[in-house]
Deep mutational scan, measured.
Amino acid sequence: MDTYKLILNGKTLKGETTTEAVDAATAEKVFKHYANEHGVHGHWTYDPETKTFTSTE
C-alpha cells in the first residue's frame, strides 16, 4: 500500500488529508467521497510523481 495525499482548495473548506491505498484509482474514490461529504465539488488533478490529488473550486 502507498500513501496518497489530497489538497482541498474549496470555497468553504481548505486543507489536506492522506489515505493508504493499493493504487491511485482507489485513493481517488476515497478522496472524492471525502470531498463530496464536505461539500467540495471542484476540478480534480493528480500528480503521479508525488501521489497528490488536488481539488479546486
Rank of each mutant, 00 (worst) to 15 (best):
D47A: 06
I7D: 03
K51Q: 05
L6A: 03
E49Q: 12
V40L: 08
T54I: 08
T12G: 09
T50N: 08
L13M: 14
A27P: 01
N9K: 10
M1A: 08
L8G: 02
E20G: 04
T54M: 10
L13A: 09
H33A: 15
H33D: 14
A35K: 01
T54F: 11
T19D: 01
F53I: 01
M1H: 09
F53L: 01
K51A: 03
K11I: 15
P48W: 06
T52L: 04
Y46N: 00
A21W: 02
K51I: 01
T19H: 06
M1K: 13
A24C: 14
T17R: 11
F53D: 00
T12S: 11
N9G: 04
E16K: 07
D47G: 01
N36S: 13
E28S: 06
T45F: 08
I7K: 05
T19P: 00
A27T: 00
E37K: 11
H38Q: 12
K14C: 14
P48H: 08
T50D: 04
L8R: 00
K29V: 11
K14T: 11
T17Q: 08
K29N: 09
L6R: 00
P48G: 06
A24G: 03
G39C: 07
K32H: 09
K51F: 07
Y34S: 01
L13G: 08
D23H: 03
E16Q: 11
A25S: 09
V30R: 09
T26V: 07
G42C: 03
Y34I: 08
Y4D: 04
P48C: 05
H41I: 13
G10Q: 04
L8T: 03
Y46H: 00
K5F: 14
K5M: 06
I7S: 03
A21V: 03
T3E: 10
G42I: 08
N36R: 13
S55L: 15
A27E: 00
G39L: 05
D47T: 06
A25M: 11
G15Q: 13
K51R: 12
P48D: 09
E57L: 04
K32W: 08
K11G: 09
W44V: 04
A27G: 01
T12C: 15
T3D: 05
T19E: 03
T56L: 06
G42W: 14
K11Y: 10
T56N: 10
T18M: 08
T17Y: 15
E16R: 06
W44Q: 01
M1S: 09
T52N: 01
N36Q: 14
V40H: 09
T45D: 10
I7V: 10
A35L: 12
K5W: 09
A25G: 08
G15L: 15
K32R: 15
F53P: 00
V22P: 15
A25P: 08
I7T: 03
N9M: 12
Y34D: 01
K32L: 11
Y34T: 02
E20S: 10
D2L: 11
T26Y: 07
D23A: 03
V30W: 15
H38M: 15
W44M: 10
E16S: 10
T19R: 04
L6T: 02
T54C: 08
A35D: 01
T54V: 07
E49S: 11
A27W: 02
G39A: 06
D47L: 04
H43V: 15
E28C: 15
N9H: 10
E37M: 14
F53Q: 00
D47N: 10
G15D: 11
K32I: 09
K29F: 08
D47K: 04
F31K: 01
I7P: 00
T3V: 12
A21R: 02
V40T: 04
H38S: 08
G15Y: 15
T54K: 05
H43E: 15
D23V: 02
T45L: 06
T17G: 04
F31E: 01
V22H: 11
K5R: 13
T26E: 13
E37L: 14
K11T: 12
K29S: 10
S55F: 15
I7F: 06
K11S: 11
K11D: 09
D2V: 11
T52H: 01
G15C: 15
N36C: 13
A21N: 01
A27Y: 00
H41T: 12
T50W: 05
Y46T: 00
T52F: 02
H43S: 13
T50R: 06
K5E: 04
W44K: 00
T17H: 14
T26W: 07
S55Q: 08
G10W: 14
K5Y: 15
W44L: 09
E16T: 12
T54D: 03
E28A: 09
T52E: 04
A25H: 09
A21M: 02
T50G: 04
L13H: 14
K11V: 14
G42Y: 05
G15P: 04
E49D: 13
D2G: 08
T52Y: 02
N9E: 09
S55A: 15
V40N: 04
Y46W: 02
A35T: 06
K5A: 05
A35R: 01
L13P: 03
E49W: 10
T19G: 02
T56V: 09
K14D: 05
S55R: 03
D2I: 13
F31N: 00
S55E: 05
E49I: 11
E16H: 09
T50I: 06
G15H: 14
L13W: 15
T54E: 07
A24E: 07
T56C: 08
T19C: 15
L13I: 14
G39V: 02
L6K: 02
Y4I: 04
T19N: 03
V30Q: 09
G15V: 15
T45K: 08
G42M: 07
L13S: 09
F31C: 01
K29H: 11
A21L: 01
L13N: 07
T56F: 08
D23K: 02
K51W: 03
N36A: 15
E16M: 12
H43N: 13
K29G: 08
Y46D: 00
T18C: 11
Y46E: 00
E16C: 15
A25I: 11
Y34M: 05
K32P: 01
T26Q: 12
D2R: 10
N9I: 15
T26G: 08
H43K: 13
